[in-house]
């Protein structure tokens, strides 16, 4: 088994009285595409900053790309949530500057900047000053700055914010390509459906602690669906009382959502519905990441602990 790209063991970080990261341990396997999620103030940025060796843990160890985080800086690409460019600097020069800081030669950085600007449909702005660009364009420039040196590990914090759907799709495609090349990608976002579409694995932290670390498949399995969506044929009604259905609600599209009792087998209920009345469609509603996120975070706010949901190997 290959060495994990990131290994974090019992990391603690306090800022005064705030316990930002609390005994956090996890591993990010090499080549994975990981969603690093959590509510505001959960400790995501602190953890990412520690991975980037921008700040250091009070306790615990962090290994990145098999060594110290500081030594691996040139192999990491980072797109911070708080974005910034030098307003007076020309786009091409800014990218060459970042490339040089990341260990590239001036020549290589220049070539890479031109290539990536073309790829991001920004070839015409290379000589423009950063302040002349729109917010979305600046966002793309910063994305290029994070990948220009072809890093092995990519960390994107809210990469799609401020982008229109076309550009978001373009960036999405590039992230997938980078992942397909074997690079490890971590991205942190509040737009959970993007994480759901893109990521193979999800980590959810809250109040500095890991509360979920699983693959998307595992999450769907763990958070067993308890809702059936039915679309009856015109002129046919679903019986008012079906065994195992605790509650029913009508949807805006003319369908019905049936919320099941706790222990009932959803497939048995679906069979009963089909037997009782012809339907146009019937399906188990998969829990979205939004549902899981809201459920876990809300329940933790009510002091319910879901530590047991974290698979043993990463706990």
């Amino acid at each position: 088994m290959s060495q994990p790209t990131i290994r974090i063991e019992h990391v603690d970080k306090r800022f005064g009285s705030v316990h930002a990261v609390n005994d956090l341990s996890f591993e990010v396997p090499s080549g994975s595409l990981l969603g690093f999620l959590g509510p505001n103030g959960a400790g995501k940025s602190s953890t990412i900053r520690m991975i980037m060796s921008i700040i250091y843990p009070d306790r615990g160890t962090i290994s990145v790309l098999g060594g110290s985080a500081l030594a691996a800086k040139n192999r990491i690409g980072y797109l911070p949530e708080e974005r910034g460019v030098y307003r007076k600097m020309r786009v091409g020069e800014f990218l060459r500057y970042i490339g040089r800081l990341k260990g590239m030669s001036g020549h290589d950085a220049g070539l890479a900047a031109t290539t990536w600007l073309e790829r991001m449909e920004l070839g015409a702005v290379e000589r423009k000053r950063c302040e002349e660009l729109s917010k979305g364009m600046q966002q793309k420039i910063q994305f290029i700055a994070s990948i220009i040196h072809e890093p092995d590990l990519l960390i994107f914090d809210e990469p799609f914010s401020g982008l229109d759907p076309v550009n978001a799709e373009l960036m999405n495609t590039i992230i997938r390509e980078l992942h397909a090349q074997g690079r490890t990608v971590i991205f942190s976002t509040h737009v959970l459906h993007q994480a759901e579409q893109l990521c193979e694995r999800i980590m959810l932290i809250d109040r500095g602690r890991m509360i979920l670390d699983d693959t998307m498949e595992g999450i769907h399995r763990t958070f067993d669906p308890r809702t059936i969506e039915v679309d009856p044929l015109p002129g046919h009604a679903i019986p008012e009382r079906i065994e195992g259905v605790a509650q029913r609600t009508a949807t805006d599209t003319g369908g019905i959502e049936l919320h099941l009792d706790g222990d009932i087998d959803p497939h048995a209920v679906m069979r009963r519905i089909v037997d009782a009345s012809p339907v146009r469609s019937i399906r188990l509603r998969r829990p979205t990441l939004d549902d899981v996120f809201v459920m876990l975070v809300r329940d933790r706010m009510h002091e319910t602990h879901y530590d047991q949901l974290v698979p043993e190997e990463s706990a």
Binding site: M52, S53, I54, L70, K73, I76, Y78, P80, E82, R83, G84, V85, Y86, R87, I98, L101, K102, Q142, A145, S146
Partner: peptide, 12 residues
């Protein structure tokens, strides 16, 4: 201008 965070990702 928040460019500091970008710099910090590249240099100490």
């Amino acid at each position: 201008s928040k460019v500091m965070e970008v710099l910090l990702s590249a240099a100490s």
